[in-house]
Simulated assay, not measured.
Amino acid sequence: MKLFIFLFLLEIHGTMGLTHSLRYFYSSSSGVSNFPEFVAVGLVDDVQMIHYDSNTQKAEFKQQWIEKAAEDDPEYSARQTNRLMNTQQVFKGNIDILKQRFNQTGGVHINQLMYGCEWDDETAEVNGYHQYGYDGEDFISFDLRTESWIAPVMQAVITKHMWDSDRSLSGDLRNYHTQLCPEWLKKYLNYGRSSLMRTELPSVSLLQKSSSSPVTCHATGFYPNRAEMVWRKDGVELHEGVNKGESLTNNDGTFQMSVDLEKSHEGRQTDTKTKTERREECL
């Protein structure tokens, strides 16, 4: 079997200069059997830390470090549970309103909210977002720059006018997304530093099922989930015949990723590098 050496580039950012995120996802449903009517999850850097649903009606912690945060703040767990119980009732009413707006009676319907913030630990730049969706489509979102609501569908216009006129709501959202959310994000990062801020380098392998099959460069065991894999030939990145796979989570919390190269686009020379200057060869 003829041996080829291919270019593989994996970029893993270190612990400095990262954009960190705190995100919450709320989802209420109508007409969905064997599933909670309301579910809420919170994530720090895409790692789930908290879960709540209408069946348990209790905020459950998913990481040891968030349990430590709760120990240091005895009222934390109760506050989270009470907040999400109240949100559950609001969303239950919202989905009824939305069904009326869209002239719907029965069927399966889902109302969602995604909100949170991002913080660059090098530039200190902060970005916030607050977006509602209904039945898989955008419904209304808050523009932090203009402090106004954007309504992409006709049924959301009445909500836009109502919320735009509520200046206290706009002020509260501005304060949350630019002040409170980043403060909580930094607090969570401090508690979870040993796991959230770690860096794990990958092991890399080259796979091919048969001589006519695509060649797969596979990297696994890296953390955080900020990596890029590319094929290059003679120093030029290849795009044609390259199929990039999604980043997947391993059982130990690290990640894996693969990039396929069609047989006709094989190259002859390769190199591997990371931001931490580690070198591997994909052979």
Rank of each mutant, 00 (worst) to 15 (best):
K2P: 14
F4L: 13
L9D: 10
I12Q: 09
T15E: 08
M16C: 07
M16E: 15
H20T: 00
H20F: 04
Y24M: 10
Y26E: 10
S27W: 05
S29K: 14
S30I: 01
S33P: 11
V39K: 05
V41M: 06
L43S: 12
V44T: 07
V44H: 03
V44I: 15
V44D: 01
D45H: 07
D46M: 11
V47W: 00
N55P: 00
T56C: 09
Q57G: 06
K58A: 06
K62M: 13
Q64R: 12
K68H: 04
A70C: 10
A70S: 05
E71A: 15
P74A: 06
Y76C: 08
R79D: 11
R79N: 14
T81S: 09
N86W: 10
Q89R: 15
K92E: 09
K92G: 13
G93V: 02
N94G: 10
N94S: 10
N94I: 05
I95R: 02
I95F: 05
L98A: 13
Q104W: 07
V108Q: 14
H109A: 02
I110C: 00
M114S: 15
Y115R: 12
Y115H: 15
E118R: 06
A124L: 08
V126I: 15
N127M: 03
G128C: 06
Y129V: 04
H130R: 04
Q131W: 00
Y132H: 06
Y132D: 01
G133N: 03
G136L: 03
D138R: 08
S141N: 07
S148M: 10
W149V: 06
P152N: 01
P152H: 08
A156E: 03
A156P: 09
K160A: 07
H161M: 10
H161R: 10
M162S: 13
D164G: 02
D172E: 13
D172G: 12
N175G: 11
N175W: 03
Y176A: 06
Y176F: 13
H177N: 01
L180M: 12
C181L: 00
L185T: 01
K187C: 11
N190L: 11
N190W: 13
Y191H: 05
Y191P: 10
Y191T: 05
S195P: 02
S205L: 04
L207I: 11
K209A: 15
S210M: 00
S210H: 01
S213A: 12
S213G: 08
V215Y: 00
C217R: 07
H218R: 04
H218K: 13
H218Q: 03
A219C: 13
A219N: 10
N225R: 11
W231V: 14
R232E: 09
R232G: 08
G235E: 03
V236R: 07
V236E: 13
H239W: 01
H239K: 07
G241F: 06
E246L: 12
E246F: 09
T249N: 12
N250M: 07
G253L: 06
F255T: 05
M257R: 14
S258L: 00
V259S: 11
D260I: 02
D260E: 02
D260Q: 04
K263N: 08
G267Y: 06
D271K: 14
T272A: 14
K273F: 12
T274I: 11
K275P: 08
R278P: 02
C282L: 04
